[in-house]
């Protein structure tokens, strides 16, 4: 039996009201949407806020729709609704797949896209009961001073373990936040920081309101994106976990690739997560693939390049060497799924 610590539960119906509540109890209030991450963490005494501000009753935070050149997803859209949404499945199958692979069905019915973005980092030495953690003398992330993973490190290396952010990063998605001083928009790729204690740029009194995904690659950040109207982005997602359901990822790979009508790559992106405190954007991929058709040799080169960049740590109970060896395997699988998405590909 795991009891929750005491708290007052607030159920605002407006975003402004929610922000005001968070502002009213600085350091003692937390927003909660599906609660699938925060509530178990509170049961483990990883968080003990005196006030919870529930967001699910705010109608403004729901809904998935295409607006102009963007797909917008309300932060409180359930992961089930993202996985089943016709718009998401049509435009970004990998996003639907990633959302559909989070945990199990009951958790996806409660859990939200905004919550998945704000998922707390995870570690063998952190996601434990208070009793367990106390017996070990706590850890750097919570109540202690020593990191049991790196032994000497001064920086928490708990793993970013959410499924949807890597896909959103490859797609150039943006996240909207609202706080006491107003609203702001951040690219999802700039949302995360390499600090396992608090790995996002969201301030504790801010809430995520919406995620916006551009429909066309030409709308993507950066100038390398092709402006050709005929170019369609294909997305792929592959997840390593111990069981086929419920488990958090041991490793995930998201890829997005745009092919010209002749089948050559015009643009490619890959993100790996489940390793360190923030998702890792793979580098060196454009040099390998742009201007080339996605032949097995090119795929192999991309997979190998990805493998060289990823060094898993002992922040999960599973062997880090094995997780590292799986990086190229899962890059190949993710690329394979992207290529299979019809269109004018040559493979």
């Amino acid at each position: 039996m795991l009891r929750l610590p005491p708290f007052q539960y607030h159920r605002p119906s407006q975003v402004e009201e929610a922000v005001e509540l968070l502002d009213r109890y600085p350091g003692d209030a937390m927003p909660v949407a599906g609660g699938t991450d925060l509530i178990p963490n509170m049961k483990h005494r990883l968080f003990t806020p005196g006030h919870l501000v529930a967001l699910k009753g705010i109608s403004h935070l729901h809904g998935i729709r295409v607006q102009g050149e963007e797909l917008t997803i309300g932060a409180c859209a359930s992961l089930t609704s993202v996985a089943q949404s016709r718009e998401v499945r049509t435009h970004f199958p990998a996003l639907a797949e990633a959302a559909g692979q989070v945990a199990g069905p009951q958790l996806r019915n409660a859990g939200t896209l905004g919550g998945n973005l704000c998922l707390d980092t995870r570690c063998t030495y952190y996601n434990q009961t208070e009793f367990w953690r106390r017996a070990l003398g706590y850890c750097l992330k919570k109540d202690g001073t020593v990191c049991h993973v790196t032994r000497v490190g001064r920086k928490c290396v708990a793993a970013h373990s959410a499924d949807t952010p890597p896909v959103l990063m490859t797609l150039g998605a943006q996240v909207e936040l609202v706080g006491p001083s107003g609203s702001r928009v951040l690219p999802v790729r700039e949302f995360f920081v390499a600090d396992g204690v608090w790995n996002s740029r969201r301030e504790p009194d801010e809430i995520v309101t919406r995620v916006r995904v551009p429909l066309q690659p030409k709308a993507f950040h950066g100038s390398e994106a092709s402006g050709e109207v005929s170019t369609r982005v294909r997305t792929g997602y592959a997840k390593l976990r111990q069981r086929g359901a419920i488990d958090f990822p041991l490793l995930t790979v998201a890829v997005a690739v745009a092919l010209a009508p002749d089948g050559t790559v015009t643009w490619v992106r890959g993100v790996v997560t489940g390793l360190g405190a923030r998702p890792r954007e793979l580098t060196g991929w454009e040099e390998i693939a742009v201007g080339e058709p996605l032949t097995p040799e090119v795929v192999e080169a991309l997979a190998e390049r990805a493998g060289q960049q990823c060094r898993p740590l002992e922040n999960m109970i599973q062997d880090p060497g094995w997780r590292g060896a799986m990086v190229p395997v899962y890059v190949r699988r993710a690329l394979g799924k992207a290529v299979k998405q019809g269109g004018g590909g040559s493979l």
């Binding site: 539960y9 159920r11 509530i39 049961k43 529930a54 699910k56 958790l107 409660a110």
Partner: peptide
């Protein structure tokens, strides 16, 4: 697991007010 408006949900991590 219980059904909330027909949807399977985990009652152990659902604050009762929800």
């Amino acid at each position: 697991t219980v059904l909330l408006n027909g949807e399977p949900r985990l009652s152990c991590i659902t604050p009762v007010w929800e």
